[in-house]
C-alpha cells in the first residue's frame, strides 16, 4: 500500500527508479517529431495519450530496440505484444526456426538484434543444432527469460565460467554486461564427467549477484528452490529451468501460464469471423484486413490472418535455401 522507501528516496533517485524521466524524455522527443500535428491537437492531450499507451503497453510497437529494452515495463510490454500478435502460430502447432522467429520479432521492432533471438534459441535447443524447429511456447518462454533478464544472464554466464575454471567465487568481480562479453557462452558441455558446477555454490554466487545488481533478476527464492533440488547444474540447464519455471513467469507478469497461452475466446471468435469473411472472397489475399486490428501492422496480416493454413511450405523453402538470411526472409513479408 504505502511504501515508505519510495517516499523517503531523494527526488532524482525516485524518478530514476521508476523510469519517470525515461518516459518523459521520450514523450517530449515524440512530441517534437510530430510537432505540427501536436500543436493543433493539444499538448496536454498528446501527453495524456502517450502515458495512456505506456500504461497499456502499446507504446513499444514499432519502436527502436534501444527504447524497447530501456525499462522492465517496456520489455514486459514487448513480450506481451509478441505473444498476443503471434500466438496463432503456436495455436496452429507450427514449428519455426530461430530465423523465422526473428522475422516475427522484427515485424514489431525493425532493428531487433539477431543475437538475442539466437541466444533464446540456444536456451531451447540447449546450445545444440541451431537450425532446429521450435514450438511457439518453447521459444516464447525462453525468449522471455533471455530478453527480460538479459543483463542478469550475462553475469550468470561469467559466474558460471569462473566456477568452471575453479576460481573462488567470492572474489569474483561480477562483470558488467560489456566486460562479460568476451568470455561468455562457451560452457564446455562434455569435457567433464561431472557436468556443470556445484549447485549450492552456484546459488550463493547468484544470490550475491542479485543483491548487487541494478538490473532485474528473477526472484531469488525461486532460483534457490531450483538449485537446491539438484547436485550440479549446467549453464543451459539452468537457463532452461528458468524458462520453464511458471513461478518466474508469474512474477514477471507479462505472459499467462503456459496452459493458458492460447486461450483467447475473443480472438478466436474474431478470427472465425474473419476466416468466414475471407474465404467468401479469396483465401489469403495479401490485401485482406488484419485480425488483431489494434496491434497489427497491415503488412503481416497474411501471416496471421490465415491461421488454419500451415506454414510448412515456407519452412521447406527456408530449409532448402541453406544460406537464407534475414534480408531474404523479411523481404518475403
Amino acid at each position: 500500500m504505502l511504501s515508505p522507501e519510495r517516499l523517503s528516496l531523494p527526488g532524482p533517485e525516485y524518478l530514476a527508479q521508476r523510469h519517470v524521466l525515461t518516459y518523459m524524455e521520450d514523450a517530449v522527443s515524440q512530441l517534437l517529431e510530430n510537432r505540427e500535428d501536436v500543436s493543433q491537437y493539444g499538448i496536454a492531450r498528446f501527453f495524456t495519450e502517450y502515458f495512456n499507451s505506456v500504461q497499456q503497453g502499446t507504446h513499444i510497437l514499432f519502436r527502436e530496440f534501444s527504447f524497447v529494452q530501456a525499462t522492465p515495463h517496456n520489455r514486459a510490454s514487448f513480450l506481451r505484444t509478441f505473444w498476443r500478435c503471434f500466438r496463432t502460430v503456436g495455436k496452429n502447432g507450427d514449428l519455426l526456426t530461430a530465423q523465422e522467429y526473428h522475422c516475427l520479432l522484427q515485424l514489431l521492432c525493425p532493428d531487433f538484434p539477431m543475437e538475442l533471438t539466437q541466444k533464446a534459441a540456444r536456451i531451447v535447443l540447449m546450445d545444440d543444432a541451431m537450425d532446429c524447429l521450435m514450438s511457439f511456447s518453447d521459444f516464447l518462454f525462453a525468449f522471455q527469460i533471455q530478453f527480460y533478464y538479459s543483463e542478469f544472464l550475462e553475469s550468470v554466464a561469467a559466474i558460471y565460467q569462473d566456477l568452471l575454471a575453479g576460481k573462488n567465487p567470492n572474489t569474483v568481480i561480477v562483470p558488467t554486461s560489456s566486460s562479460g562479453q568476451h568470455r561468455q557462452r562457451q560452457p564446455p558441455n562434455d569435457c567433464n564427467p561431472l557436468e556443470g558446477v556445484e549447485a549450492s555454490l552456484f546459488y550463493q554466487c547468484l544470490e550475491s549477484l542479485c543483491d548487487r545488481s541494478k538490473y532485474s533478476c528473477p526472484p531469488s527464492a525461486l532460483v534457490k528452490e531450483m538449485l537446491s533440488s539438484v547436485q550440479r547444474m549446467t549453464f543451459y540447464g539452468f537457463l532452461m529451468a528458468l524458462a520453464k519455471d511458471q513461478g518466474i513467469n508469474r512474477a514477471l507478469g507479462a505472459l499467462p501460464d503456459k496452459g493458458d497461452l492460447f486461450l483467447d475466446p475473443a480472438m478466436d471468435q474474431e478470427i472465425e469471423k474473419l476466416v468466414a469473411h475471407v474465404s467468401g472472397l479469396s483465401v489469403s489475399g495479401p490485401a485482406s484486413s488484419s485480425a488483431d486490428t489494434a496491434n497489427m501492422p497491415a503488412r503481416n496480416s497474411p501471416r496471421i490472418n490465415s491461421p488454419w493454413k500451415p506454414l510448412h511450405h515456407r519452412r521447406k523453402m527456408d530449409a532448402e535455401s541453406e544460406g537464407s538470411n534475414e534480408e531474404t526472409d523479411s523481404s518475403e513479408n
Binding site: 517516499l7 528516496l9 493539444g42
Partner: peptide, 17 residues
C-alpha cells in the same frame, strides 16, 4: 511520489485536457 507514476501522469494530463 506515486507507486505508479505512469498512470499518475496519464491521469494528471487527462485532468489538464
Amino acid at each position: 511520489r506515486p507507486a505508479e507514476p505512469v498512470s499518475f501522469l496519464a491521469e494528471y494530463f487527462e485532468r489538464l485536457v
